[in-house]
Simulated scan of single mutants.
Amino acid sequence: MIATRDAYGEALAELGAENESIVALDADLSGSTKTGVFAKRFPNRFFNMGIAEANMVGTAAGLASVGKIPFVSTFAIFAAGRAWEQIRQSVAYPKANVKIVATHGGVTVGEDGGSHQSVEDVAIMRAIPNMTVIVPADGEETKGAIRAAAAYKGPVYVRLGRNKVPTVFPAGHEFKIGKGNQLVDGSDLTFVTTGLMTAQAVIAAEKLQAEGISARVVHLGTIKPLDKEIVLKAARETGAIITAEEHSVVGGLGGAVAELLGEECPTLMKRVGIHDRFGTSGKSDELLKYFGLNAETLMEEAREIITRKG
């Protein structure tokens, strides 16, 4: 169990030792986003921009224009919200080599409540041209994703969480932008998941097997560009898709998969996530249960979609 934000802090510090062009900027939240690990090792390459997210993104774009590789971090609600215009105009439009790594995404922010629980950020970032959007499942994938983002030339948005999550991928997992991973084989239906919901889908698939339901699990660590091949293959072979994400079903993973299937392979489908509403205050585990973001809900949806499938 490790929080993806903790894995980010470790990976960024490792990269900093390997590449002097990497710099980090934070909006007075380095203790929470874990860029503080980088700051301690490389104080001359760390910039605390204060509570000025828009200025931070603009500064990062300037640093990128002179060959630096800036990693910009704050909470997802502030990155996708307060700094949206600067991300669009100063980063995405000119294809600036800026990496926006936003932590505290989703309802697992917990007691901070709906005002701080970003459930729209993936949709917002996915809509921006030239933007790559990544949502890792666990700490190991996060480390690989940060390395891949650093090597990639262009804007990247990485969404991370606050809480510790189960480890899905083995140590040293190689992350490839735009490529999904089939974690469990199955023939009756496919769970297409991202973020912390991937571990829940693996649990659900194992339990469903005992009921005679064969569920495939496909994890998409990259939401944009979407791995069309792995999704279409699953749709054609299993005939039923259930997406799962700690995000609004509007415009996130569910929206992306629905768009693809609607155009290229109409398939029986269900979206599990936040259904067009804001988050609320509570303990993270209680909120996941409240919003149905768990293996039990996935199993219920699997039984229902099998019935609908006939």
Rank of each mutant, 00 (worst) to 15 (best):
V91F: 07
N97K: 13
A80F: 05
S73R: 04
V98G: 02
P136C: 04
S90M: 15
P94Y: 11
G106M: 04
G106W: 09
W84C: 11
T59M: 10
I134A: 03
E140F: 09
G106C: 13
A127K: 06
R126N: 00
I69M: 01
K95R: 13
G67R: 14
G114A: 15
A83Y: 10
D138S: 05
V101P: 12
G67H: 14
S65Q: 01
E85K: 06
V119I: 03
S73T: 13
G62Y: 00
A123F: 11
E111H: 12
T74H: 14
N130G: 10
R82M: 08
A79C: 15
A83Q: 03
D112F: 02
A137H: 13
K68C: 12
V119T: 10
A137L: 04
V133M: 00
T142R: 08
F71I: 08
H116N: 14
V107L: 13
T142Y: 07
V57N: 10
E120V: 09
Q117P: 07
M131V: 03
T132D: 12
M125Y: 00
I100Q: 00
E85D: 15
R88G: 04
S65C: 10
F75H: 02
A64G: 06
E120W: 12
L63M: 15
G105C: 09
G110H: 07
M125S: 00
A102F: 11
L63Y: 08
I124E: 02
P94T: 06
A123R: 06
M131L: 08
P70N: 05
V72F: 10
E141M: 15
V133S: 00
M56A: 04
V72T: 11
A79M: 15
A92I: 14
P136F: 07
D112H: 06
S65V: 15
I134C: 02
D138F: 01
Q86G: 13
A61C: 07
E85F: 10
V109H: 05
R126D: 02
A127G: 02
W84G: 03
T108S: 05
I87A: 05
A64M: 10
S73A: 07
W84R: 15
G105T: 07
V101Y: 11
A102I: 04
V133D: 03
A61E: 01
F78S: 14
G58A: 12
D112R: 07
K99D: 08
A61R: 02
Q86A: 12
